[in-house]
């Protein structure tokens, strides 16, 4: 368990009260926020707590549940060597505000989540498929996308 910034959860609770929800994880402090509170929480972590690096942005598809997707942000505080994970739930018809304004490095991972999961990031400077061809149908990492089969055009 990364405990390099032990009071971070307490400070987040002071700032955002009951808007954030603690999640049990074996490796690092983890919290769940509503989609509307995502940008305020991430902005606080970036500007007030100096979490200067966004190591990864990724999506997980929990198919039968609603909202369907979970977005996971892995943040890093390079001076304290501290990590934190912020999660939010996204429905299939919802668009997520981009974090490229906070961390430009989130550009490609957000494009990847768009490409492979079909999650739309509003305000992204260059939202297009990154791995697959522009005319590809479907989003392969969704759980309802088949693993094998021939493509019918």
């Amino acid at each position: 368990m990364n405990q390099n910034d032990p009071d971070i959860m307490a400070r987040l609770h002071d700032q955002f009260a009951d808007k954030i929800e603690d999640v049990n994880a074996v490796d690092q402090p983890t919290l769940m926020v509503a989609l509307d509170d995502l940008i305020p929480v991430l902005t606080f972590l970036k500007t007030q707590e100096n979490y200067a690096m966004c190591l990864d942005v990724l999506a997980v598809d929990y198919l039968p549940s609603r909202p369907r997707f979970e977005l996971v942000y892995h943040l890093y505080q390079p001076w304290k060597r501290a990590r934190i994970r912020v999660k939010t739930r996204v429905a299939i018809d919802q668009s997520v505000p981009t974090v490229t304004t906070l961390w430009p490095g989130a550009n490609w991972p957000e494009r990847e989540a768009f490409d492979l999961f079909g999650i739309v990031f509003s305000g992204h400077p260059d939202l297009k498929r990154i791995y697959l061809p522009e005319d590809w149908d479907g989003h392969p990492l969704r759980k309802d996308y088949p693993l094998t089969g021939t493509r019918i055009d």
Binding site: A52, M53, C54, L55, D56, P78, W103, P104, G105, A106
Partner: peptide
Amino acid sequence: ITQEQALAWSVT
């Protein structure tokens, strides 16, 4: 790549 750029762009 300056230090600020490296941090902002997740360079490791």
